[in-house]
Structures are given as structure tokens and as C-alpha cells.
């Protein structure tokens, strides 16, 4: 399937040209910056949850970490939006690079793991105040390790996008 006509069209849109062509710091530099901040909160709070499951900060009741989840999800949505804007700016650069699909797969896996972990860690029996049963905590450990690996991989893949692309624009 040849997606070049689509890429040429997308790159010709006003939004795409604003993202990469505007001299404003709020355009490309600002979007990149938001993407880094969203990453810090999404991957960072996820890592805190994973580390707690793996035994860090044992005095923190696991179920109470759910109070930080809205900030994690805010970071995720900031990055979904800023990521789409960056994609609209340089669609060819991302869509012709296998590393971009690797990054998306790793983020998707990390989010599925987060939902699974949330179901186990924050369900009704736990929220009624009962101590989490050690067997359930043990079952969550592989999920927490996989989550940390996925986030580290997603961040690395994201950074490598700047070094591994073969085409910058549909024309070039």
C-alpha cells in the first residue's frame, strides 16, 4: 500500500505547516516540551506504582496510590494529543520508521498492564480497607516488571526516533 499521497496531503495542511514551520516557541518546541512533561508524569507515576508492587516504600498502602492515577492519566492524554500534533507535523518521518510502531506497541502494552494492575490493586475488596492478600500481590509482580520494561523501552524508542528515520518528509 502506497501511503505517499496521504502523507503529501497531510504535510500540506495548515496544521502540519504550523507545527513545524511556525517561529513561535509554542509550536514545535512547545509541543515537544509538553510531550516531555506528560512523559514524566505518565511513565513516572506508573513506575512509582510498579516499584511499590515490587516492594518499595512498604509503608504506603498500595490501594492509596490510586489517588495519583488521575495525574498519570492526565500525562497520558497530554501526550496522546501532543503526540498526534507531532505526528501531523512530521507524518512521513514517523510512519516510515519501524521504531515508531515499536514505540506505540510498547505504550499500548504499558497501558494494558496499567489497567490490569489497577483492577488487581484498586478493586472493591481492597478498597473496603482490607489488607491486600500476599498471593494477589505476588501475582502482580510480573505485571509490574513488564510495565517498567515497557516504559523504559517506549522512552528509549521515542528518543531514538530522532536518529533512526530514513525519510523526513514525503518529498524528501
Amino acid at each position: 500500500m502506497n501511503i505517499d499521497p496521504f502523507l503529501v496531503w497531510l504535510e500540506s495542511t495548515a496544521l502540519s505547516q504550523w507545527v513545524i514551520g511556525s517561529p513561535s516557541l509554542l509550536a514545535f518546541p512547545g509541543i515537544l516540551t509538553l510531550h516531555a512533561i506528560g512523559m514524566g508524569f505518565a511513565a513516572g507515576i506508573s513506575a512509582v506504582l510498579d516499584l511499590r508492587i515490587l516492594g518499595a516504600a512498604p509503608g504506603v498502602q498500595l490501594s492509596e496510590i490510586r489517588r495519583f492515577l488521575p495525574i498519570l492519566w492526565l500525562g497520558f492524554w497530554v501526550n496522546a494529543v501532543s503526540g498526534v500534533l507531532l505526528l501531523i507535523g512530521y507524518p512521513t518521518k514517523a510512519l516510515t520508521n519501524p521504531v515508531f510502531y515499536l514505540k506505540l506497541s510498547l505504550i499500548a502494552t504499558a497501558m494494558v498492564l496499567l489497567v490490569k494492575i489497577s483492577r488487581l490493586a484498586f478493586d472493591d475488596t481492597v478498597l473496603s480497607g482490607a489488607e491486600i492478600d500476599p498471593d494477589r500481590l505476588r501475582r502482580m509482580r510480573p505485571l509490574a516488571i513488564a510495565s517498567l520494561v515497557c516504559w523504559a523501552g517506549a522512552v528509549t524508542a521515542g528518543r531514538l526516533l530522532a536518529y533512526t528515520y530514513t525519510r523526513l518528509t514525503a518529498a524528501g
Binding site: G40, G44, V48, E64, R67, F68, W151, T156
Partner: peptide
């Protein structure tokens, strides 16, 4: 890449502690 992973750890741990002081997760 390591610099960005370090950023996530720093914001995750220190940012969460700051948020706790500011009132998020008061039962912790």
C-alpha cells in the same frame, strides 16, 4: 534515552512526594 528515563524516575518519585505534601493521597 537514559537521561529521559532518569527524568521519569525523578518526576515520578519526587513529583509524587511533592503532590502528597500538597494534599494528594492524604491517607498515605
Amino acid at each position: 534515552s537514559l537521561h529521559f528515563i532518569g527524568l521519569c524516575l525523578l518526576i515520578g518519585a519526587i513529583g509524587s512526594f511533592d503532590l502528597r505534601l500538597l494534599g494528594v493521597g492524604k491517607r498515605i
